[in-house]
Design a protein around this nucleic acid. Structure first.
Lengths: 156, 156
DNA sequence: CCAAGGTAGGTGACATGTCAACCATTCCGG
DNA sequence: CCGGAATGGTTGACATGTCACCTACCTTGG
């Protein structure tokens, strides 16, 4: 017997879905207009930036981003073509490939990041109380906990 | 001068992004596996179901879904090919087209909805307190309020 | 040492989304 | 009533994602 959602739940769910859609659309527009990067590009570049070793194997990237390797492979090919990243042979393992940030990629992420953060503040955090920020973190943690435990299976 | 996010904000933001990614992936997998529908298909079918008049013009649908008309047009073409919806001429305006649910489409949404709701409960609402549900609704409302006011412009 | 299986990554075909340009119609000022 | 602008919707080219499969290389039991 399926229980439908309560009114409050339905309201929250609809709000969440709409927020998602519009927020990511808006963040994408801003980033694209401001720096020519997509959100996906940005995420890749962030991974390559926030670490001591400037090189990263493709598999590491895939793990960090939680992307399918096929998606990543296609995306890296495009970013490579645009000169944002480059490939290097991996001496330890000839199957593997190092991905490195090019000067252009480094410049792109460094130029894009501040405006992106400003936008996130402007659209989200400037309007939330400390309690709401905490609630958002708690909610995410709960749901992610469930998703992690659940794996790819489906509600009974 | 750009302010970066506080630790709490960063935690909340990362959690939100990860939750989004994984939650929508999981919901999509469930729906696809269970009924052969994508989330997009589901949203279209819901719009066509939840209303007195079973017919809807393409533009109405686009407004209700907040989709670009081009996206909707392509998607309707695919759903039409799969027999989920059909087109009817609009007598009032020869440019316009009515979209109607076919028997197959009706059956698909009616079969898919209960399991989808179960999954949403299982992955989300079963793990949240009433306060958290309220907080999620409040947060969405705030952010959507800002997005609505802002339109397509960008942080200062 | 070698064959079988696992691992890293790439490819091609196809689904979906976006952008811009394009009919066909309807509307409207003169 | 007419010519141009607005409207409703579609189309084609292209960007991105997914799935299934492929290749090359490593690893390991015998």
């Amino acid at each position: 017997m399926t229980r439908w959602l309560s009114d409050d739940e339905r309201r929250a769910w609809r709000g969440y879905l709409d927020m998602n859609t519009q927020l990511s659309a808006q963040l994408h527009r801003q980033l694209q207009a401001d720096s020519g990067l997509s959100l996906a590009d940005f995420d890749v570049l962030v991974q390559l930036t926030d670490r001591a070793e400037p090189r990263m194997r493709v598999g590491e990237l895939a793990d960090a981003l939680q992307w399918e390797k096929s998606r990543l492979s296609h995306h890296l090919a495009r970013m490579n073509k645009r000169g944002l990243i480059a490939r290097e042979d991996c001496p330890d393992d000839a199957r593997s490939v190092f991905i490195v940030l090019t000067a252009k990629g480094k410049q792109a992420i460094e130029q894009a990041a501040p405006a992106h953060v400003d936008t996130v503040r402007d659209l989200v955090f400037d309007h939330l109380s400390a309690e709401e920020v905490a609630a958002l973190a708690a909610i995410s943690a709960r749901v992610l906990g469930r998703l992690g435990r659940a794996g790819p299976e489906v509600a009974q």
